[in-house]
Structures are given as C-alpha cells and as structure tokens.
Design a protein around this nucleic acid. Structure first.
Lengths: 223, 223, 223, 223
DNA sequence: GATGAATGAGGGTTCATTCAT
DNA sequence: TATGAATGAACCCTCATTCAT
C-alpha cells in the first residue's frame, strides 16, 4: 500500500499501450461487451507474443480491466485462448455453408473459395487466428481437432464431390485437385505466413498471387 | 512422460547421480560433439514444446550434460535457439546451389525442387525447423531475415529466371509461376503443417500430394 | 464437491440466477434471520476448511445471499468468524449458570458437567466451535480471551470451591481435581479431536469414554 | 534490477526477523543442513500462522535462503508441511519402542508415558507439532493417518495389554483405563492447548497437572 | 571446462473487499 | 437493503541465469 508508487514503476512493455488504469471504470459495459473486449485484447496479445509469452496482465490492461476480471469470464489462460480462437472461427462457418451449392462449376467454386479466403481471412484478423492455430495447434490438440472438424473437414466435404464430378466431366485435366483439395488453399497459407515473416524484407502481393494460383489451376481453360 | 517426472522434487542428495539417466557417457566428448549434442537436444525440446515453453533444464538432461554447461556453448536461450535453427538450415544451402544450373527445363527444375523438399526437408527433422521458423519467426526477426536471405531469396533467385525463360519460350501456359514462385513450395508447407496438426484425424500422403501438385503445374504437358 | 464445481467460470450472464441453487427463497427474510443464515453458513465453511481457507463466496452461496450482503452484517471476514463463535458459545452460558448450585456433591457436579458436555457440546455443532477455538485461537487472541473469560474461567469458578469443599470433607482421595479442574474436561477434548481426526481409522465411543472417565475420577467410591 | 531498492522495501513481518539477504550466502552448507534449516523455519512459520496463512516467502527468509530454493528440497508447500511434521514425529518413535517392556507394573508404565510426554513433547517444539496435527489434520488426512498409525495406534498397542493385565491382577479399581487408554494422555493435550491459548490470561503448571492426573489414576494406591 | 545448487524476477491464479446499480 | 461484477494485492510456483566448487 505504502509502496504503491514504487511498485507501480515496473517496466511497461509495448503491449501495454492501451492501459488506462487509474480511471475508475466500472462503466455500464454489458457482460457481452466486456467479454468481447477481453477476447479482442487476447487476440492482440496472443498473436503478438504467442500463447506462452502472452501475459494476462497485458491482456487486462489492453482490455481496460483488472487482471482478476478475466477470471470472471474465462476459467484460465488456456480457456481464454481456446475460446478466443473459437469465437473468431465460428462466424465464418456460416459463410462456408454458403459454398454448399451442388451444381456449381469447379472453377467457380474454387474462385469463390479463394475469394472468401482473401476477404474473410487474409484481409482480417482471422489471418492471425490461422497463424495461431498453425503455431500453437500442436500444443492444443483440442483446438487442432476443432479446426479440422469445423473448418477443414467441412470445406473438403463440400469441395471434393464437386471436383470429382468436374474430373468425370473432363472439366479438369487430371484428378490431382480432386484427390488433394488441400492444394487449393496452400497458397493462402503461404500468403499468411509470408506476410507475418518476410513482408518486411520482400513484400508479397497475396491477392495477385491467389489469382495467379487460379490461372495455374485452370490453365489454358479460358479465364 | 519421462520429462514430466522431473516435476517431482529434484532430489539434491547423492541420488542426483541417477537422475542423469539416458545421458550420454561421461567420456571426454570433444567440444564440437558436446555442442552438437546440445543442439540436437534443443531441436527436440524446442520443436516439441515451442520456444517459450521449452526448458533448458530438459535440453540439458536430454543432452546428458549439466544445465550450466549450456552457457559455456551458447550465450542464452535465445542464442541457442537461433544457432540451432541455423545449424539445421546451413547444410541444405549447398544443396540449393546444386540447383543453380542455368539451362534446365522448368519442369525438371521444379521436380528437383520438390524432390529436394520431400527428401531433405519433409522426411527429416528439418520439417520441424520449418515449423519452428513459421511459428517463432515473428518473435525472432533476425531468424526470419536469415531464413529469407539464405533460403527463400536464394531459391527465388535461382528459380525465377529459369521460369521466366520458360515463359518466354512458351513452355508454360502463363507467367503465374514465374511471378510467384512461392506457389511451387506452398503445398510443401501445407504438408508440414498438416502433418503436425491434423494427421491424427486425417492422414495426408504428402509425397503423393506433391506429385499431384506437379501434375497441376504442368497439366496437359505430358508427365 | 458442489463447492468445488464453483471453480469453473462463474458465468456472469443470465445463467447466474440458477447459480443460487440450494439457496433459501427470496422472501423478505428478517434481518435477524438473514444474519443467522450467514452465521450458520459461516459455521459450516469455517469448520469445514479452517478460517484461512474458508471462502466468503461459499459462505454467501450457502446462506443463499450475495457475497456483498455479508458486509452489511459483518465488518469483515474476521468479524464474521468471531461473531459466529460467540453466537454459538453464548447460548450455553446460561446452562453453565444452572450448575451454580452451592451444595451439590462433587460427584454429582462432575456428572452434570460431563453430561452437559456430551449433550450440549459433543453431540452438537458446538464441538466444531471448540475445535475452531482450539485451532484458530492462537491467531485470534480476542477470541481466546473471550472463551477463557466467558466459559473456562466461569466453569472453573463454579467447580473449584465445590471440589475444594469435597476435599475438605474427605469425599475425594486427594486434592488433585480441586487444583486442576481442567482434568475434568480433558477427555472431552480428546473426544472432539479424535472424532475429527481418527474416527475414520479407529472409531471411539466418546460417551462411554466419558463414563469410564467418571469411574476413574471417583474410583472405588461407589457408582 | 533497477527496481531493486524500491522493491526491497515491502513491509517485513515479524516472522522475517531471521532474514539475512543481501549477503551472498552460497556457503558450503551441506544439503542436509540446508534441508534442516528449511524444516526448522517451516516449523516456526506453520506453527505461528497455521498452514494456509504461512508464506513460503517467510519460510525462505527465516531459513536464510531464496524462495526458489525451497523447491529444490520439497515438491510444494504441502509436501514441506507434511515432511516437516514427519521429521518431528519420527525421532520419538524409537522412544515409544523403549516403552515396550512386557512385565512392567501399570503405574510405572503410565508414569513413564507421562514423563516422556512432558519431556519429549510438552517441553519441546513437538508440542507445536501436536497442535498443528490437531489443527490441520482434518485438511491433511494422510497426516492424520500417519500420526494415528505411527504414534497413537502404537502407543495404544503397547499400553492396552499391560493395563488389561493390571485389571486382571486387581491392580486397578476398574477396567476404565484399559478400555480407554486415551484417558492417559488427555491432560497432555489440555496442557498443550491451554499453553497456546490461555497461558496469557491464566498460567497453568502442566507438569504439576500431569502429576495430579497420576494421583487420580492411581488414587489411594500409594504414591 | 563442467557442474548443479542457488537465485529471484515474473506470471497465473485466488479471494477479501468495494461500490455502482 | 441487496446485489455481484470488478478490483488488485498477495502468494505459490517456475525457470533462465549465475557462480562457487
């Protein structure tokens, strides 16, 4: 108590920019709004430092709340992390269902898929979520499983039959894509990772790369 | 599991000798051998837990040495990490140079590239290095820069002119690959990440996917 | 168990209403009734976990009120604890006065005392109060003093002259009991503590032990 | 580091008297000596504050070591507590065996028992151990079981047959003590608890009380 | 060089207490 | 008066780093 001044010193990392303590908040934020603020702060901190190095102290500061408040909304650090990821992934699941149109030409399907990816993932904070899943997934099997079941498997289930039919109809030169639809989004991952790692040294025009990717997938079959 | 057991009290008494089980013999290992043992142990621990969660204690145990010994070879945890990555990346740089053959058909170049990737990266511990760079790179800009400069930029420099020439000669249906050679290895990354994240739920035959990828890149142009 | 479950996130939303299960109805309980409910809940929690480990949160849940309400009735955790003890001790003080009958034979006095102990203390929640005083007393000198002044000293003041007179009249073989009347209740404490600690391993028939104790105190002097 | 001065302030409780930080210790204390120092400090802190309220920080200061050092010798706070209790109880187990003399008169046995109690328990730190077991036992069933099995049951096993024989030989006026040998030590517990709770208000001559107890147990049968 | 006991800053988590509603 | 979300000090425990041997 008497030490307040001294103890308050403590070097404040860059992530503490948003700190706003000292101000008696206690404003009438709805529980949902407060939960969302914590999730948003968590996204920043987790994607900025990685799960292990992120500090709940910084999450709290960034969310404009006290550290203990986090525990009113989430059981612990791990739960906060996983729920944050899920909260970012869930809204896109509906979008995926919109792709489920049986009689669409393969090319149109792939175009839509890449378009959704660029606009809903690459251009948003979701690209950080994808990076977090790729980085932390091995330590959070539940999360990897969730992402596989809810996103990957679902997309594959939609895409595979359509590509298969396209192969049978001769719309595709071979069955490569039908057998490995993962190839469709591979450049998307490269885009996300390149952006996080190498953009400072050599920028990459990811949307243009995605279009080039499309040109390759449907080469010579008219644009 | 064996590592977990360490959570019990580290008995300080005479029984501590037995704690060094699994350790290499106490023979007078050459400094180089000892350094290599530390690097090998570091690779295991870092790729198993991630940088932040890896414990130098475990690295030491795995290397069969005392914790303090690590500091005789490396300045600190971060230096160990970075030097470990570099030590894994360096040996492949020579292999890359071998690709520098001016007058090679584009397809053959790409085939060799993918082959090198599968055999020298995907089938080895280097796949873990790639994962570590992708995961930890944002926190280690020096490492990202190193990897970009020594591997990425180098490969691009080799590949781009050859693809460019192939385009000019009409060997490729469009210039997509020449403009974004990143597309060549994109499936490789997917392979590595899928293997680490989703193989338990849905296995993926990565070599087969790479061949399928090749089929797409050079579709209709004969196998 | 039910309390343990609380460790999960305290859901903040609408579902919080259901969290008040087991709680008394929301009728306009009189302040006295509410105070009593808190005291009863406090007894349960304090005697179950000890002072330091008891959580006011759990006291509130058990009393069917909100945590903050406790502070409308008690200054803080310590005050709640001390007042709870006092509220349990006070009712027995009258009973003690009933012992103050000047011309009673020593044996009858002791019999009554032990009988009161067994029926009013050992057979009731007051045994937990005694345990709490014994356990926490050193950290709550005010409580120890209160208990000594209100119970111990009072009983001693009643008992001593009667035993003294019995010695003088030759009704007792020696003055041991007159000098140390504490010996009368010593087995009572053993009964309480044994019950709390060792009953699971070796049950003890405390009332029978108290009768045996009486046989010893007045050995050979007829039942 | 830069905060050293400021951080060092922090109100220092009475229990920190033995603190000696600042002085580069690292002297050649044997592991056993250091372990013992921790156990001694733990005894002080636990018996002074109770298990829950004792701070490992204070234990460390009192032992003249850093906080983390405790964890080199004990798995966690609970292990420290339990091992401390066991380390205090174990040395007396041999003494108990010395009581195992088959053909000893009942009175002599009881005298020895009470004598051991006064000299080995009441007059030593072991009285605090007994208090801790009585206070914390319900929260540490393993400890209660250990104490019951190693001390209580053992003493009972020694004492009961001898008392039984004494009853058969007519050396005792009744079988009360043979059936409830707990009555022998009951005053001992009262002595310990009184000392901790009420000595400040009304001192109690415990050794004298034990002798008076003996007078009662063997009343009229000669001193 | 090698060791590993010791250090102590750091961070996750708990919970008594406050106070706006 | 009653509520319970919010607060933040306190405390257990971990682990990178040091250094006497």
């Amino acid at each position: 108590m008497a030490l307040r001044g001294a103890r308050a010193v403590r070097k404040v990392g860059a992530s503490a920019v948003a700190a706003r303590d000292g101000a008696r908040r206690r404003r009438a934020a709805s529980p949902q709004a407060r939960r969302d603020a914590i999730l948003a702060a968590a996204l920043d901190e987790f994607s900025g430092r990685g799960y292990a190095a992120a500090r709940l102290d910084d999450v709290a500061k960034r969310a404009g709340i006290a550290k203990g408040t986090i525990y009113l909304y989430f059981a612990d650090k791990e739960a906060l992390f996983q729920e944050m990821v899920r909260s970012m992934v869930n809204p896109i699941l509906g979008t995926l269902e919109a792709l489920r149109e049986v009689d669409i030409p393969a090319r149109m399907l792939v175009e839509r898929l890449l378009d959704v990816f660029v606009r809903e993932v690459y251009a948003t904070r979701r690209k950080d979520i994808v990076r977090l899943i790729l980085s932390e997934g091995p330590r959070f099997p539940a999360l990897a499983q969730f992402y596989h079941a809810e996103v990957i498997a679902r997309v594959l289930a939609i895409v595979r039959p359509i590509l298969q039919r396209a192969v049978e109809r001769g719309e595709l030169p071979n069955d490569a894509l039908a057998r490995f639809p993962q190839l469709i989004v591979a450049p998307g991952l490269v885009g996300i990772l390149w952006h996080a790692l190498f953009d400072a040294f050599e920028p990459l025009d990811v949307p243009a790369m995605m279009r080039a990717h499309l040109d390759i997938l449907f080469a010579g079959r008219g644009t």
